[in-house]
Amino acid sequence: MALVEITVIPLGTGSTSLSDYVAGCLKVLEQSEGVKYQLTPMGTVIEGDLPIIMGIIANMHEQPFLAGASRVSTTIRIDDRRDKEGTMESKVLAVQNKIIRPGGTD
């Protein structure tokens, strides 16, 4: 299972606000099957099979053009671990379990 972080940046929109474009990209994800995703302040993390995610990314990249952007810059980071299954939650928990909390254990 792969974890992919994607940031889609529409350019040439005539506005500094991008939330409408982000919403359009998230609609692509909502209509996709076989993946989980989490919106973050600076991008979106997608969890699933890499070939499926890559198709979704192509559709997300296209979305701002359909909404009137004249240029789109998309950044993708892929974490594709094959020796064991990793999820968004398991990666966060692995770090949290190593943090020593006052009055607790690590």
Rank of each mutant, 00 (worst) to 15 (best):
Y21R: 02
D20L: 10
Y21Q: 12
T40R: 01
A58L: 12
T16A: 05
I76L: 15
I99C: 01
M88L: 10
Q96N: 02
S90R: 14
G48D: 10
G14H: 05
L66T: 09
G34K: 06
I52A: 14
L26P: 04
I56W: 01
G12P: 07
G12S: 09
G104W: 13
C25W: 02
N97T: 07
T75G: 06
M60C: 07
K27C: 00
R82D: 14
D80L: 02
L11T: 06
S73V: 12
G12F: 12
A67F: 13
P64A: 09
D20Y: 07
Q63Y: 01
R71W: 05
R81N: 03
A69T: 08
S19K: 02
R71G: 02
T16D: 13
D79A: 09
G12A: 08
K27N: 07
Q63V: 03
S17A: 08
N59G: 01
E5M: 10
D83T: 14
T74I: 03
V72M: 09
K84F: 03
T105K: 15
M1Y: 02
E33Q: 15
I52C: 14
R71H: 15
K91M: 05
I53L: 11
L50D: 07
T13D: 08
N97D: 10
L29G: 12
G34H: 09
P64I: 12
M42C: 05
T40L: 05
D49Q: 13
R77Y: 11
V28H: 12
I100H: 10
D79L: 14
I46R: 14
T44S: 00
G24P: 10
G55Q: 12
D49P: 05
V35I: 15
A58Q: 12
R101C: 00
M54Q: 06
I99K: 03
R77F: 09
K98W: 11
V22F: 03
I76T: 15
E85K: 14
I78Y: 02
I52W: 00
L18C: 01
V22K: 03
E33S: 13
M1T: 04
E62R: 15
Q63A: 13
I78D: 05
L3F: 01
R81Y: 13
A69K: 14
V22N: 05
S19H: 08
I99M: 04
P10S: 09
S17K: 08
N97L: 11
G68F: 02
G103F: 01
T13M: 13
I52S: 14
G68C: 00
G86A: 14
E85P: 11
N97E: 15
T75F: 15
T74W: 05
L29R: 13
T87K: 00
I57C: 04
G103C: 04
P102Y: 10
D79N: 06
D49C: 03
Q96R: 12
T105C: 03
G43Y: 10
A58F: 07
D49H: 08
I46W: 09
I9E: 05
T44K: 05
V4Y: 03
G24Q: 00
E89H: 07
D80E: 11
S17I: 01
D106M: 13
R77P: 00
N97V: 00
L93M: 07
Q63R: 15
G68A: 00
T75Y: 11
L50A: 10
G43E: 02
R82E: 08
S73D: 09
P51L: 09
P41A: 06
K36H: 06
